[in-house]
């Protein structure tokens, strides 16, 4: 299991290589990237802030939960970026390997969906005329 929070650009090919396993017939990956607009506003860039120790701990727990739900899971890699990201940059890369494809899709989706709910990382969207912490206010 590879869990990482990094201030450096994420190398997606390297994340895929981390889950190579002889018992795997499927590798599934999710790559989250920075979009140029949000709720109709043009986004200039994003700033990610993390509570580092807890973020890594929570990402690890999510990966462990995936392993409990899908015991056939061979390997898991989760790499999340922090700091300032430009449009098109990779914010998160998740890769899983399993014997068959159905479980790889399910496990990968579970991991990204759960990460978005529990991992203490905060995204600030910067627009041409201001900036907003995403989801902070109703």
């Amino acid at each position: 299991m590879h869990i990482e929070l990094t201030g450096e650009p994420i190398d997606v090919a390297a994340v895929l290589a981390m889950v190579e396993a002889d018992g795997a017939g499927a590798v599934n990956a999710f790559v989250g990237t920075v979009r140029n607009q949000s709720t109709g506003k043009r986004v200039v860039r994003l700033h990610y802030e993390a509570y580092d120790a807890m973020a890594v701990g929570q990402m690890r727990r999510v990966a462990e939960q995936a392993q409990e739900k899908w015991p056939m899971l061979q390997k898991v890699a989760v790499v999340h970026r922090k700091g300032t990201l430009e449009i098109g940059d990779v914010a998160v890369a998740i890769a899983v390997s399993t014997p068959h494809r159905a479980e790889s899709f399910a496990a990968c989706q579970f991991i990204i969906d759960t990460i978005k709910k529990v991992v203490p990382i905060w995204k600030k969207e910067e627009y041409e005329d201001g900036a907003v912490w995403v989801a902070a206010h109703p």
């Binding site: 990610y48 993390a50 509570y51 999340h80 203490p120 995204k123 912490w133 989801a135 902070a136």
Partner: peptide, 9 residues
């Protein structure tokens, strides 16, 4: 630590 609504991913 205070944890406001998270927005990672």
């Amino acid at each position: 630590a205070l944890i406001p609504p998270v927005s990672g991913g």
